[in-house]
Design a protein around this nucleic acid. Structure first.
Length: 506
RNA sequence: GGUCGGUUCGUCUAGGGGUUAGGACAUCAGGUUUUCAUCCUGGCAACAGGGGUUCGAUUCCCCUACCGACUACCA
């Protein structure tokens, strides 16, 4: 068997959708597993939908995710091969001409408006065998007429000629054998003279052939056009090297019906793009997983399991393990609903797996943004204390702000429930106890505080919570004496003082 | 409308002619942490419906329902 070569071929019409990321991931895993090549090809044959910056966004996204390519638009190659279809423009026409010569395609002059009109007149109008002899094309017009129209600059398209009544088999690696009758296919436009560019169908088949693609792994929305593609391989005489197809199930909305869309993310409050994306036309900004505080490894793991499973109970997979374990055979046929909660759970797991110094680095941007000066050693210690309490990197500030700034407010519920008239007296006493442990020792400070509380016949929960309140500002956070140790006795004393003053005012 | 595909806990899924239908997320309850979160333990919770085939169907076959994709000079 020839060497595995697969491709991811997005259209630069906007940000890379999470479903596209999964498609690319499965291609990547398949390529790596088979020691094959993974190619990034940009399918920009629709000039009207081209969005500047989209291609770079796609590349940036894969860089962040750690999904790498062997060939592609962003990788220089010495053979001077173009991986952007707009730059391969000159390649396609000859294949359309070949089809024309062999009477497997024909020239059609019907304008988009005329066809639109037909669609209004006739319900379920389809440009196919049933109507093509009533249309303006090289099948109905004389050769001279056709030549003259072309010479005079009349716009035309080249359509594939599909003979009705033939069963076409798609042997899909995931869906199995799917049989479709050619009668339901229309004579699809392959090439248009208006811009000299092929449509998706032609460009895709020509490029896959020229790039020696062995497996086409793509979204299930392509399954209905697979028969057309197979026909094209046959027409062009490339049947023996035709790639194998694998159509991936769709990613569905978390609620309701239909496939996941950008709007669902906005509506339900989660990203659908890897990186933040600013639409150059509308200036609308959509959040990305990165900005939300996700780790790329977590996204990869989550996406890998959305539509595929190893057949075991294992859920946590490194990318290397995925490369080893992944198989197209175990990809599901049915669509999978997107589950943001589970994505967050994966992220939580991956955060725990990082060591403190790695993780601390990921918090730098947050502190920088807040304008907080910090000591790396200190940050790493804080990280160690709070890491198990967060799901997203962005939860950091919520869980750790008090390590860097004094509380500016105190949780009213805690005050109401715990703060008594004599609380300040006892807190002052405890403050002194902590200050007196010199050099400071966490265990000693704790024990002496506990002794004080029992000796005075006080309620442990009440006093400890008030102490926490004055240091943290709320009833949350890691072990109180761990916090005190990091903050230091002096800062702790100051905070107790501040809290007593502030709460007195209330 | 037509073509194709799909349907196991709320969600992702395992399983497969005889199982207490398993796991994970979410959720609920206990425990730990004198806080909150984590963590641990446990609970709730599913084979879309109807016909076959069979001693026996969630599993195989057919039909129905529902869901989805596609049906462009878009990809």
């Amino acid at each position: 068997m020839s060497k595995v070569r697969v491709r991811f071929a997005p259209s630069p019409t906007g940000a890379l959708h999470i479903g596209g990321v999964r498609t690319a991931l499965y291609n990547y895993l398949f390529a790596k597993q088979n020691k094959g090549k993974f190619i990034l090809r940009i399918e920009d044959t629709d000039t009207t939908r081209f969005v500047p910056g989209a291609e770079q966004y796609i590349i940036d996204s894969f860089n962040w995710l750690g999904i790498t390519f062997d060939e592609g638009v962003h990788i220089p190659n010495d053979k001077n091969i173009a991986y952007r279809q707009s730059e391969r423009k000159s390649i396609y026409k000859q294949y359309a001409d070949y089809l024309l010569e062999h009477k497997l395609a024909y020239i059609a002059f019907d304008t988009p408006e005329e066809i639109e009109e037909k669609r209004k007149e006739v319900s379920n109008f389809q440009y196919d065998a049933s109507v093509r002899m009533q249309m303006k094309n090289s099948l109905t017009l004389t050769n001279e007429d056709v030549q003259q129209r072309i010479a005079s600059g009349e716009k035309y398209v080249i359509r594939i000629l599909i003979n009705p009544g033939k069963d076409i088999e798609v042997n899909d690696l995931i869906c199995g054998k799917v049989v479709i009758n050619s009668s339901i296919l229309d004579d699809k436009v392959l090439w248009k003279s208006s811009d000299g560019l092929p449509t998706y169908h032609l460009a895709n088949i020509v490029d896959d052939h020229l790039m020696a693609i062995t497996h086409v792994i793509r979204g299930a929305e392509w399954l209905p056009s697979a028969p057309l593609h197979i026909l094209l391989y046959q027409y062009l005489g490339w049947e023996d090297t035709m790639p194998q197809f694998a159509h991936l199930p769709l990613i569905l909305k978390p609620d309701g019906n239909g496939k996941l869309s950008k709007r669902d993310g906005e509506r339900l409050g989660f990203p659908v793009f890897p990186l933040q994306w600013k639409d150059p036309k509308t200036n609308e900004v959509s959040p990305g997983y990165k900005e939300k505080g996700f780790l790329p490894e977590a996204i990869i793991n989550f996406l890998a399991l959305l539509g595929w499973n190893p057949g075991t109970d294992q859920e946590i997979f490194s990318i290397d393990e995925l490369v080893k374990t992944f198989s197209l055979e175990r990809v599901n046929k049915s669509g999978a609903r997107f589950d943001y909660e589970k994505a967050k759970w994966f992220n939580h797991i991956y955060i725990q797996e990082k060591n403190n110094s790695e993780l601390a680095k990921l918090f730098h941007p947050i502190l920088l943004e807040k304008g907080i000066a910090f000591d790396e050693q200190y940050l790493q210690q804080v990280t160690g204390l709070i890491k198990e309490r967060i799901n997203l990197l962005n939860d950091f500030w919520d869980q750790a702000s008090f390590f860097f700034v004094r509380p500016t407010s105190y949780d009213e519920n805690v005050i109401k429930k715990r703060w008594k008239e004599d609380t300040p007296i006892h807190l002052n006493a405890i403050k002194q106890i902590i200050l007196d442990v010199d050099p400071f020792d966490k265990q000693q400070a704790h024990d002496k505080t506990a002794i004080y509380i029992t000796e005075h016949g006080l309620n442990m929960g009440q006093i400890m919570n008030c102490l926490r309140l004055s240091i943290v500002g709320a009833a949350k956070g890691p072990d109180l004496f761990d916090i005190i140790e990091l903050l230091g006795p002096t800062e702790t004393g100051t905070r107790i003082q501040f809290a007593i003053e502030a709460i007195k005012q209330l």
